[in-house]
């Protein structure tokens, strides 16, 4: 079983090394398409941004640009939808996004794609996967984009839950709608619990997986999952968060699913370098070099089995030894052949 899995791992690595030029844009396209479609389903206030051709074209552009383009398009689409609903909600979200951008710029932790992945996984009821995966694959600083991803998700949630209040222009003033929006996002206890739980899990998983103990990655996934679950439950109870949209059962199921997916990811990422074909240019005094460096494929060596044949009672009566070592016989034959040749 393990051998088959290892072979699959090699095949995946081989496949990626060979077709990474096509795989990367396809992944970016799918990611952009999924996240923009999710925005359409959860917000969808601007009819122009809801049309499938617009989403497809935007996803196609994202697939050709660096991965940060997905984040830019996601935020632009989100602001567009919110602007179409309410000016006040747009101002609050825009200001919060600017604050997040400048705070992000202080450390530039990288992995800005997490900003898109977190709301997407929240939509798929698997947000608990994010901190475990980040702890396994990134540094502790990735807690910053993860926290901002949570804020983005709660922005969407708050706008979605307050459509009526934000569109009632007759009964409330602009300032009241601004206050409502700011209140709901900035003092959202559920958001605070999620941010703290995510940060704690990322730090814990990162520290454990770097320990020099056997199976540190698996231990990190297990402990990270349990601590995250406990942190969310304790936090929700302590802060008396009621309308989080997650029941305890869905939380536990989501966490189990996340741990399982994290184990699969661990299998495919741990000690595997997904090196890709590189194109480099350089020169010396005599030549210009245009080099295509293709990663070498290392095929897992087949496991060697030593078969030992034990003779039965009949054979023993015939005077045969208890155990026949075929390897020894072969060596003897080869030795004889060598001597004959001499």
């Amino acid at each position: 079983m393990m051998m088959k899995l290892l072979l699959i791992k090699d095949k995946v690595k081989e496949f990626y090394g060979k077709y990474d030029v096509y795989i990367d844009p396809v992944i970016k396209f799918l990611l952009a398409f999924a996240s923009l479609s999710m925005l359409k389903n959860s917000l969808g206030f601007m009819s122009q941004l809801n049309s499938m051709p617009v989403i497809l074209v935007a996803s196609l552009i994202c697939s050709l640009l660096p991965v940060n383009a997905v984040v830019v398009f996601y935020m632009l689409f989100m602001l567009g939808h919110i602007f179409a609903l309410s000016m006040e909600a747009f101002v609050v979200c825009f200001l919060l996004m600017c604050i997040m951008f400048f705070t992000y710029f202080i450390f530039k932790p990288g992995n800005s794609i997490i900003l898109v992945l977190v709301p997407l996984l929240f939509g798929w009821k698997l947000p608990y996967l994010v901190p475990i995966l980040l702890g396994l694959t990134c540094s502790m600083l990735s807690a910053i984009p993860a926290a901002f991803g949570v804020v983005l998700y709660y922005m969407i949630l708050v706008v979605k839950n307050n459509v009526m209040a934000l569109t009632e222009t007759e009964s409330s003033s602009m300032l009241i709608r601004f206050q409502l929006m700011a209140d709901q996002i900035v003092t959202n206890k559920g958001m605070l619990v999620m941010i703290l739980a995510f940060a704690l899990t990322i730090v814990l998983v990162y520290v454990i997986r770097r320990l020099s103990v056997a199976h540190s990655w698996k231990i990190a996934i297990g402990i990270g999952g349990i601590v995250e679950l406990a942190a969310i439950l304790v936090g929700m109870t302590m802060l008396e968060v009621s309308s989080t949209g997650f029941s305890t059962a869905s939380l536990v199921i989501g966490m189990l699913m996340s741990a399982l997916i994290a184990l699969v990811v661990e299998f495919f990422l741990f000690s595997v370098d997904y090196s890709r074909t590189e194109y480099v240019q350089f020169e010396d005094d005599e030549y210009y070099y245009y080099v295509k460096a293709v990663p070498k494929l290392t095929v897992t060596p087949p496991q060697r089995e030593v078969k030992r044949f034990t003779v039965n009672q009949k054979g023993r009566e015939q005077g045969l030894q208890e155990t026949v070592d075929l390897g020894e016989d072969i060596r003897n034959i080869m030795r004889e052949m060598a001597e004959e040749e001499k």
Partner: peptide, 21 residues
């Protein structure tokens, strides 16, 4: 220095938001 500039802008925006609120 980069951090100081960024945090100053972010803080100004947060204060602006607080003032509007």
């Amino acid at each position: 220095i980069k951090s100081a500039i960024s945090i100053t802008i972010a803080f100004a925006l947060a204060v602006g938001m607080w003032v509007i609120y």
